[in-house]
Design a protein around this nucleic acid. Structure first.
Lengths: 200, 200
DNA sequence: TGGCTCGGTCAACGGTCGTAGAATCAACCC
DNA sequence: GGGTTGATTCTACGACCGTTGACCGAGCCA
């Protein structure tokens, strides 16, 4: 009965560990709810309930709903590899990046995507990421209207991702990433390449 | 001084007229606010204030916020003329319809577009319109994956319109409809036409 | 072992929202 | 001209939200 190793295995969940664990549980719950409901309809009480804690604790760790959203929706920059080369390569890089997102879009970016249209902060974060993407793309496009073309590509990507994950109206939600990419390839090539008007 | 036509010109604003006028002022205010802020952030009090009336009156005419939104966001069906002919004609019809929307998108449809991601009813209305559009398009596409192609076209249209009117991040907001349409033409033709894989 | 720290809970405040119903007042009909 | 209707306002209720501060109890250090 009397086990003889008091502090050997039971080294469990120190206080700092507990804190980190709870914090990440709150963040996960927040991400899911923000992604499902958007900023406004997600309440701190609901986040706390899903994480199994009290609402006051959420306020204690993150200091406001805005800060909670900022933490939950923080996303790693999509390092799309547009190492400027031939337009065809640029298009392929963009398509590969899109394919990755179509395969498994991170919940955090779905949270900002869901909140873009109604929450100013989410819109600003999206704009920053979008501007960066547009800049990266447009320097790789040899055309005078490169920036407009890049903006169109960005809009297409957002539209497709939003439709697939958020609206889920059409078959876009069930199709495989490869099918979608294959259909989109000529689009991206036309937008990237300067071969659109006449090939002269 | 004494004008001599008591009931001639002063035939002004009968009660029914007044009502119609006030009602449409409320609807206009609601449309603007729903389009700017989305469903959740738009309050009945704000709509009433913008229309210059009391909030109770808004409730008296429209009986709930949901019904007000439904009335304000009711939009005429976009009669896109996809009189099924050659794929090129189909693409041109879609582009012409998009050009019209890029020229002047009605505020009502911006209201539902803004609220799509956070309001279930708006999403349902959008889905209905989208499904109809997808059906109309897909019957005109001679391909086995016609429905997926139509879904992609629909997603692209939504993405471009949302970026132009709601996000306004890129140059898409300032470009002329013709520029955009010209750049999108090869995209739509590739998606509509069965000439994508190999022309054999 | 005792005191301190800190993860966590509880109850409440102030504000805003959708909504309901009584009250007001001018236009309308007989 | 008096009664009625209906447009419009006023007041208030109840619910919910973000946020706060007091409080509790278990781990931690000396």
């Amino acid at each position: 009965m009397t086990d003889s190793n008091p502090p050997a295995a039971p080294r469990r969940t120190t206080r700092a560990d507990q804190r980190r664990q709870t914090e990440s549980r709150i963040l996960a719950a927040a991400r899911e709810l923000f992604a499902d409901l958007g900023y406004d309809r997600t309440t701190i009480r609901a986040v706390a309930a899903r994480a199994g804690v009290d609402a006051g604790l959420v306020m204690h760790y993150f200091h406001s709903k805005d800060e909670l959203f900022a933490q939950a929706a923080k996303l790693a920059d999509d390092d799309l590899p547009v190492a400027g080369s031939s337009p065809a390569e640029v298009a392929d890089g963009l398509l590969a990046s899109l394919a990755r997102r179509l395969d498994a879009e991170p919940v955090a970016s779905l949270a900002v995507l869901r909140s873009i249209l109604t929450h100013a902060e989410a819109a600003e974060g999206f704009r920053a990421a979008g501007r960066q993407r547009v800049d990266q793309i447009s320097v790789a496009i040899p055309a005078s209207d490169a920036e407009l073309r890049a903006g169109l590509i960005s809009a297409i990507i957002s539209g497709v991702v939003a439709e697939r994950y958020l609206l889920r109206t059409s078959l876009l939600a069930q199709a495989s990433p490869e099918e979608i990419i294959d259909l989109l390839r000529p689009c991206f090539q036309a937008l990237v390449g300067p071969l659109s008007p006449t090939e002269s």
